[in-house]
Amino acid sequence: MSRDEVDRAIVGLVAAYDRISAAMFEMDAHPALVLLRGGGLRGRTAEVATEVLGAVEVLWSQFAALGAQLDRAKTVRAERSRPGDSELRLLTSVLRHPIVGLSASGMVLDSLAAGTPASWQTVPGLADDLQAVAAEVVHALGEVEAASGRVAKLYAQPAAALAKASADATNLGGDALKGSDVDALAGKLGDAQAEALRDPIGASGPPPALVSEIDALAQRIADLAALRSAYPERIRSLTTAVDEVAAAEAEAREVYDLAATKIANTGLPPAPDAVGGLRAHLAQLGQLQREGRWLRLADELSNVEGSVARAKERAAHLHEAAAGLLERRTELRGRLDAYRARAGRMGLVEHEELSARHRTAQDLLYTSPCDLPAATRAVVAYQRYLNQLTERGNP
């Protein structure tokens, strides 16, 4: 090599060494390398750790050899501004000839005592190999870091949900956490994440059953928090609804009383009277709310709302049933009058038997209390006899 070729080669190697040095620093400071060196890994991550840690050991061995040979070349070149033939031959040997002995794994063998080299490499070739392998190792570490980040992200959501549920439950106080062990859930989640980090590359996320348990707790606490916020409005609405039940029951009792006066043996069930129990239940809800018994309050509030709806429906149904009896009597009276008018048009008003049947039906319908089944039979009997007379003519 000429002096200029030597100088260019050294400058190129210095630049390569600086790039490799930066890559080695990035590699050595990489957080994923700490994980791989920590041990206890399994699965694909354990395989990557074996590959990467082996490559790192080889890289440091070769990096040290590159530095030593570069220093050697720089020292020889610095001895004379114009190196002689002997210096140029030595520099040519260092810069061009395969002088670095490598084992089968790539480790540098400094002496024959360290073993017989499986191959020999030039210093520039060593620099090229170092740059390529260092880039591969940094890339592999990046994949491990990305996998670890993915695991952290997968576990962040249930961890945040659990932390929020715990904080909200503490804010609620009372029995919000009754039957739940937040610390145990947090411990299970932490153990699962630690296990996932043993093989972040192959990890699939938190156990579904554990996530479901955490989600259920978080939803329950969220529902209780929503209950606390909505309680004043719900209790106002419920109080109004109970007042409506009271009014509906009062109306139903009025119709009941009238039906009992006008209709004999109504066959109606007892008059509606749920409002007293509902008001007592409302008072119980207030006590539960003041004591912070949220779980019980949630159940009881739903129960009362259901009871109010059923009581209102029952009052309306019984009102309709009682009113129906009175309407039935009115309907029968109207039918009897219509049949009587028909008899008049046919000249049968004075018919003795028909008139007797009319009086029977009329007496039943206009006597209080009215025997509604008997009145119904009497009206039907009058109608049938009138039809018979109409069909065969007036006897």
Rank of each mutant, 00 (worst) to 15 (best):
A147T: 01
R96L: 01
A104Q: 11
S119K: 08
L112I: 12
Q131P: 12
P124V: 04
G106I: 03
T122K: 07
V94F: 03
I99V: 08
Y155Q: 08
E136V: 08
P83W: 02
R82K: 10
A78W: 13
V123D: 00
V144Y: 07
V108A: 07
Q62N: 12
P158D: 01
A73F: 02
A146R: 13
V137M: 05
L141N: 06
H139D: 14
L154T: 09
A152L: 03
T122D: 06
R80H: 06
L95G: 04
I99R: 05
D110R: 13
T92C: 08
W60D: 13
A147L: 00
A113Q: 10
P158Y: 04
A152M: 03
L95F: 04
R82P: 08
V138Q: 06
S111E: 11
W120P: 10
P117A: 04
D85E: 08
A118N: 08
A163C: 03
D71K: 14
M107N: 11
L154H: 13
P98F: 01
E57A: 15
E136Q: 14
A73Y: 00
K153H: 11
S93A: 06
Q121C: 10
A64G: 12
A73W: 00
G142F: 12
S93G: 14
S119G: 07
T122S: 07
D110S: 11
D85W: 00
L91K: 02
A135S: 15
L109E: 12
G115E: 05
H139A: 15
P158S: 03
A140V: 10
A65V: 09
A156V: 05
V100C: 00
A113G: 14
I99S: 05
K153C: 03
V94S: 00
Q69P: 00
Y155F: 14
L109K: 01
L91D: 01
V94Y: 00
L90Y: 11
